[in-house]
Design a protein around this nucleic acid. Sequence first.
DNA 1: CCGAATCCACAACGATACTG
DNA 2: CAGTATCGTTGTGGATTCGG
Lengths: 126, 126
Amino acid sequence: MVTKQFDGPPDEADLRRADSLAREIFSDVADKWALLIIEALGEGTLRFSELRDEIEGISHKMLTQNLRMLERNGLVERTVHPVVPPRVEYTLTRPGQALRVTIDGLCDWTHRLLGHIDASRRRFDA
Amino acid sequence: MVTKQFDGPPDEADLRRADSLAREIFSDVADKWALLIIEALGEGTLRFSELRDEIEGISHKMLTQNLRMLERNGLVERTVHPVVPPRVEYTLTRPGQALRVTIDGLCDWTHRLLGHIDASRRRFDA
DNA sequence: CCGAATCCACAACGATACTG
DNA sequence: CAGTATCGTTGTGGATTCGG
C-alpha cells in the first residue's frame, strides 16, 4: 500500500522523481477537457455518447483520449457491458471524486467572478 | 458594480453569453502554465526573471503570454518600476488570490494521491 | 531586464473511414 | 455504440533576434 516501508534519509533522487511525477499528473489534470469530463461525471455514471452530448464542443477523438488518460491515472472507471450494441459506462473512482471537489471550487470561483473578470477584460482591451 | 440592477426574467441570450464567457475563462485558467504561475505568485511579489527561475521549464515566451492573459483577466497586477535596467513585478490581485486557494486544493490533491496514481499507471501500462 | 516579433518544427486536433 | 487508425490542417510553443 505504501511506496516505502521505512522513512530513510530523504533521497534527492527520490524527491526529483516525485516532483517530475507531480508535474506530469498536474499536466494531465490541469487540462480543459479533462476537467470538464470530471465535472460532467460528477453527476453519476454516464455512457460514452452521453458524455459526448453533455460536454459541448468535444470531439469523439478528444473524449476517447482523455478518458483513456483518466482511466490510466485511476480517476475514472470504465465498465463494458457485453451486449450489442456495446454499452460502455464511465464513473468516477474515489480519487476522481476527490479531484472533482476541488474542480467544483474552480467552477464556483469562475461563476462568482464572471462579471469582475469580464469588466477587467474590457478595460484591458481598451 | 453589478451587471444588472434588477433581476429580470432570465434571458436566454444572456445565459448563453454567460456560459460561453465562463467557458472562455475556464479555458484560460485551466492551463498548466497559468496555474503554476498563480501558485508561484502565492508566495508574494516576484519579478519576471524570478518567476522564470521559479517555474521550471517555462519559456520566456510562455511566461510573457500567460502573464498578459492573467493581467487581462485581472488576476495578476503588473507594476513597472521606471529604472534601468527595467524592474517589473507581478503580484496576485484579490480575485487571483481567491483562485490560488482553489489551486492549492489541486496541488494538495496531487501530492496526496501521487503514490496511488503512480500505482494505477503501472497497472494500466501492463 | 523585459517584451515584442519572426520563423519554423512539431504536436494537437477534427474529419473521415473502418472494425468489433 | 464504442474504439482505433490515418491524414491533413491548424496552431502552439521554443529559439532567436531586436528594441526600449
